[in-house]
Nucleic acid binder design. Structure first.
Lengths: 340, 340
DNA sequence: AGCATTGCTTGCAACGCTCCAAGCCACCGA
DNA sequence: TCGGTGGCTTGGAGCGTTGCAAGCAATGCT
């Protein structure tokens, strides 16, 4: 092929091989009806011209692209980064391309992303984490293509999640067994459903032990923490008269920021403060972080999610209900210990 | 629009509005030739049917998609994750969709990714970090579409990089000024060009001070470190007779793993060992990591890179040469101090 | 010899859109 | 009355594929 020339088309190949476009098409798609002789001629022409089929044309005809859309919240959070990457790899294994968009939780970008992908006639959508305006997105998608939520859940689509509630319970029990009484949950100002579930489980297990944890809203690194809308100060709640001793952060990303706050204030972890995260991101295992956290089986979540999506695409309804659960487990590391 | 129905086409809209497809097309593309009355009728029909133009059809006709391909090495490394995310956001700002692939440095996946994107007729390609087989990829791309490397460099395409060499020099000078004499560079077994440049700069500035750093090949977390192909032991080189005191890791990701090694061995940083990274990833600022590192202006790199790409797309040749340089600076934190 | 069958190959109509040339219909000036 | 003009609308070809129906030799069967 000439440098910089327009890419060869199927018709070019047909001409060069002296056959009809249909025959070339048959060869390309590996139909077995073509005579060996002809196939060889065509193959040579293809190689000579460096022909590659135009996916746009194929997809237009099919009415659907061989492409999956991936929408993630935020690649700065290593959990999402890895999930997105895993999804891409998984769908690639089935021959699908991936369109990608990180929304940073901005509802407008969510909307644009979905429209973009719908316009490109992606075969399906994998949404990693929650949407800000699920109802709007649902009407947009309008059952046109299958959607699966991974590590998140919406009633109108398939989803694969861990048992967040149980994860929250495990954290509470762990802290309580260690002897903690003054517990808290730290989550975003605008919690999504996973955050809420984790909190529920945490509160439930705490209540069973007669405890009532503080619920702190905090969006690191900028915002100040607040309880019930009232701004509080880290020094007060971590170093005051009755300091919190066990904090469950809604995710590892926040937990690690919380560790940083503790470090800044000179509050020693785990001696003075126990911290538990959720997700078990790679860096949680570093000795410097050494975070006790709830593990999500990322690979399994992605495999199940993509499996469900492909099932829908092929018309099968895979898993039983719309919601599948995968296991969850507490990984105890060095950020938790008995209270002082 | 009916639930689950096939999406409305331009022709559907035309029929419903009682005009020709051409007119609908004119309205959709915002041509000013359509009479206000007609435009309103068409607009109503569009809204009623929930019509959205089929990007595949448009792109087929144009010969090019309004889509940019992003190829990154590895989303587990937060530097690449953030770069990829920034690129996606930047191109989205210009109305482009993004196809994405993470190759994990696997040459086969690189090849597949490029083919996939070429087949989808992406408008251009942004490649974050180096390729394993640049020559092969170059022939594949064959000047069909513009390519820009960000934070990497190939002779056959535009690229935007920081002055890696100078970054390496700055690290060496910093360590030498602190009084270090036993220096080392830690980089991957198969260094890419950026690694090589950083090393060059490091060696150069060290040589100017009469020093000859050890060059260690290491691919954390699996492989053992080696010098000149000979496997060495961390305990020996960090705690032996003449331990290394200043180590420059090719990137923050490796630097953080090195910190973990030091922690495991009980080698105190920075008291016994100074560590410097490269990239200034978000987590480097955490007190628990507190890594001295060379900052890359990520936003600027991406803006310049995408700018160059769009320039090529529009036929302008933007920057002077194929290679643009952006500034680089040492961020001194707590992982470096005078040697013991 | 006549006819069906086998084994290939081909023509053609889509897919949903764009773009250009051409058409239509007042309305205007001469 | 007629040609011209301007404002708006339309027909149709074509982008690169696919998939089906039809074509067409050569072979097999009776």
């Amino acid at each position: 092929m000439e440098r910089g020339s327009r890419p060869a088309t199927l018709t070019d190949v047909a001409q060069s091989a002296g056959v009809s476009p249909s025959t070339v098409s048959n060869v390309v798609r590996g139909s077995d009806v073509v005579a060996a002789r002809t196939r060889r001629r065509v193959l040579t022409a293809i190689a000579e011209l460096g022909y590659r089929p135009n996916a746009l044309a194929r997809h237009l005809l099919r009415g659907r692209a061989t492409t999956v859309g991936i929408i993630a919240r935020d690649l700065r959070n290593p959990f999402f980064a890895e999930m997105a990457s895993l999804v891409e790899r998984e769908v690639a294994g089935f021959g699908f391309g991936a369109m990608f968009c990180a929304t940073d939780g901005d509802p407008d970008r969510e909307e644009q992303a979905v429209e973009l992908m719908l316009d490109h006639r992606v075969t399906g959508l994998v949404i990693v984490s929650f949407l800000s305006r699920p109802a709007l997105i649902a009407t947009k998608i309008n059952d046109q293509i299958p959607v699966v939520f991974v590590a998140a859940e919406e009633p109108w689509a398939d989803s694969v999640t861990v048992d967040e509630h149980r994860g929250g319970e495990m954290v509470a029990r762990h802290l309580i067994e260690l002897g903690h009484r003054r517990l808290a949950f730290v989550g975003p100002q605008a919690p999504d459903r996973a955050d809420a579930r984790r909190l529920e489980g945490f509160l439930r297990a705490a209540a069973d032990a007669g405890l009532q944890p503080t619920v702190i809203a905090w969006d690191p690194p900028d915002g100040p923490p607040s309880v019930g809308g009232v701004v509080v100060e880290w020094p007060t709640i971590l170093k005051g008269n009755e300091p919190l001793t066990g904090i469950f952060a809604a995710n590892d990303f926040a937990a690690i920021d919380l560790l940083d706050v503790a470090d800044t204030l000179g509050v020693r972890v785990p001696e003075a403060l126990s911290v538990v995260g959720f997700d078990d991101v790679d860096m949680a295992r570093l000795r410097r972080i050494n975070l006790t956290t709830v593990s999500q089986p990322r690979g399994a979540l992605v495999r199940l999610g993509v499996g469900a999506l492909l099932g829908r695409i092929e018309g099968r309804i895979t898993g039983g209900p719309h919601v599948t659960m995968a296991s969850v487990g507490l990984t105890v590391r060095g950020s938790t210990a008995p209270p002082p």
